[in-house]
Amino acid sequence: MALVPLAGVLLFYLIIPLFNLILKSFLKEGQLVFTLEYYVSVFTKKYYIGAIINSVLIAIISATIGMFIALFAANAANHATAKSKNKFLSILNMTSNFSGIPLAFAYIILLGNTGILVVLGKKLGIEALAHFNVYTITGLIITYVYFQIPLATLLLIPTFEGLRKEWREASQILKASSFQYWIHIGIPILLPSIFSTLSVLFANALAAYATAYALLANNVSLLPIRISEMFVGDVYQRPGLGSALSVIMMLLMVIAVYINQYLLKKVRGGGAR
């Protein structure tokens, strides 16, 4: 049947490889012996725990900051004229493609050792800028926020469009202030979207590879880079450990989704509607 070709590709390039990866994380390298040594390694060695913690931290922080900015941007877009909004949307679409190496490079131009803003900071005596080191976690977070913003805004604009202005008007007639409107009506309605977008942002940042690769070399330990090191490159390969790290990364993303669902249920069940 015509489903076979697609099924075949899915099988050979998605399902089997994933199972293989999961399997490999539990088998001693080259043998058929069950072992938990890789997972033990991961959770006991600072090198790997550090990578996990760094990645999760950067993901959470950049997702939150990106979301925060996006909320204002998406709201602003919905109050703009159709023409302005369309222009803004094109800009968002255009810049959402700008990620990975080009993005890292652009931020090196801005905030690298001889970056424009750093030089400016030195000249104007602004300490924070003058000594800013983009090759750190902070630098990475700032860079990550850049690609979180268009993604989050594009995901949020349709939800803001769903906030009918009649509701705002009704609340105004009932003498609610702007703040109260947002607390009692606006945000509760937006909450499902906010949570699911946060999930997407988190996964995005957690798995981001190119940007980190280009920016960091080996300054900061990150999960995706550690994983790829186990499989590719000059250092000797440790597929078992790499598989365990990969499984942990997948679990982290799945946990993010579950937290999302859980929070959603709490909000819904708590009578926000």
Binding site: P17, P224, I227, F231
Partner: peptide, 10 residues
């Protein structure tokens, strides 16, 4: 990254 790694190992 996960997809690429899983295909590479296999």
């Amino acid at each position: 990254i996960i997809i690429a790694i899983s295909i590479l190992t296999l």
